[in-house]
Deep mutational scan, measured.
Amino acid sequence: EDYYQILGVPRNASQKEIKKAYYQLAKKYHPDTNKDDPKAKEKFSQLAEAYEVLSDEVKRKQYDA
């Protein structure tokens, strides 16, 4: 799945936009606030993985290549 789609940001998003999108979605899908939703944990880990790659310039360049 596309990391940009997961975070809901365009491919040319700035680091600030990526961070903002991640924090909004992380708050929304955090397992502690969605105890009754088994998919929230999965969504949250996808968000974390996408953010880890896109927030790191080197990893992001490799991902975009």
Score class of each variant (00 low, 15 high):
residue 31 P to G: 08
residue 2 D to H: 04
residue 16 K to H: 15
residue 63 Y to K: 03
residue 58 V to Q: 12
residue 42 E to T: 11
residue 63 Y to M: 03
residue 12 N to L: 08
residue 8 G to I: 04
residue 61 K to D: 10
residue 35 K to M: 14
residue 57 E to S: 08
residue 65 A to M: 12
residue 64 D to K: 01
residue 14 S to V: 04
residue 32 D to A: 10
residue 28 K to M: 14
residue 41 K to L: 14
residue 52 E to S: 12
residue 61 K to F: 05
residue 29 Y to V: 07
residue 24 Q to C: 10
residue 48 A to Y: 13
residue 31 P to Q: 10
residue 40 A to D: 05
residue 36 D to H: 13
residue 8 G to P: 00
residue 38 P to A: 12
residue 58 V to T: 11
residue 25 L to E: 07
residue 13 A to G: 04
residue 49 E to L: 11
residue 18 I to M: 04
residue 27 K to E: 15
residue 2 D to A: 04
residue 42 E to Y: 10
residue 20 K to T: 14
residue 40 A to M: 10
residue 21 A to I: 04
residue 43 K to W: 11
residue 60 R to W: 00
residue 33 T to E: 12
residue 25 L to D: 03
residue 41 K to S: 12
residue 53 V to L: 04
residue 13 A to E: 01
residue 9 V to D: 00
residue 65 A to C: 11
residue 39 K to T: 13
residue 4 Y to C: 01
residue 12 N to T: 13
residue 18 I to Q: 00
residue 60 R to D: 02
residue 28 K to V: 11
residue 54 L to C: 02
residue 22 Y to W: 09
residue 16 K to Y: 14
residue 55 S to N: 07
residue 24 Q to M: 15
residue 62 Q to L: 09
residue 10 P to K: 13
residue 22 Y to S: 01
residue 19 K to G: 07
residue 5 Q to R: 08
residue 6 I to Y: 04
residue 58 V to N: 14
residue 26 A to P: 00
residue 35 K to N: 13
residue 42 E to I: 15
residue 60 R to S: 01
residue 32 D to T: 11
residue 64 D to I: 02
residue 6 I to K: 05
residue 59 K to V: 03
residue 59 K to C: 05
residue 26 A to D: 03
residue 46 Q to I: 10
residue 44 F to N: 04
residue 20 K to C: 11
residue 61 K to V: 05
residue 51 Y to G: 02
residue 59 K to A: 06
residue 12 N to E: 06
residue 65 A to W: 08
residue 25 L to A: 09
residue 15 Q to F: 14
residue 58 V to R: 07
residue 62 Q to W: 12
residue 62 Q to G: 06
residue 38 P to N: 09
residue 11 R to L: 04
residue 50 A to P: 01
residue 4 Y to W: 02
residue 42 E to L: 11
residue 55 S to L: 04
residue 34 N to E: 08
residue 20 K to W: 15
residue 13 A to N: 00
residue 45 S to D: 13
residue 4 Y to G: 00
residue 54 L to Y: 00
residue 57 E to K: 08
residue 35 K to A: 13
residue 26 A to E: 09
residue 38 P to E: 11
residue 20 K to F: 13
residue 35 K to S: 11
residue 26 A to S: 11
residue 41 K to C: 08
residue 53 V to R: 02
residue 60 R to C: 02
residue 29 Y to M: 09
residue 54 L to W: 01
residue 56 D to H: 03
residue 15 Q to I: 13
residue 58 V to S: 10
residue 21 A to N: 05
residue 41 K to V: 10
residue 51 Y to K: 02
residue 57 E to D: 09
residue 50 A to Y: 02
residue 46 Q to G: 05
residue 36 D to V: 06
residue 60 R to Y: 01
residue 1 E to T: 13
residue 56 D to Y: 02
residue 11 R to H: 15
residue 49 E to M: 11
residue 60 R to A: 01
residue 44 F to M: 12
residue 15 Q to M: 12
residue 33 T to Q: 13
residue 12 N to C: 14
residue 21 A to L: 04
residue 32 D to R: 08
residue 15 Q to A: 13
residue 43 K to I: 14
residue 57 E to C: 08
residue 27 K to N: 13
residue 20 K to G: 09
residue 11 R to K: 15
residue 61 K to R: 10
residue 43 K to G: 04
residue 14 S to H: 07
residue 10 P to A: 12
residue 14 S to M: 05
residue 10 P to L: 08
residue 56 D to E: 02
residue 34 N to W: 12
residue 9 V to K: 01
residue 40 A to P: 04
residue 17 E to K: 07
residue 54 L to E: 00
residue 64 D to Q: 02
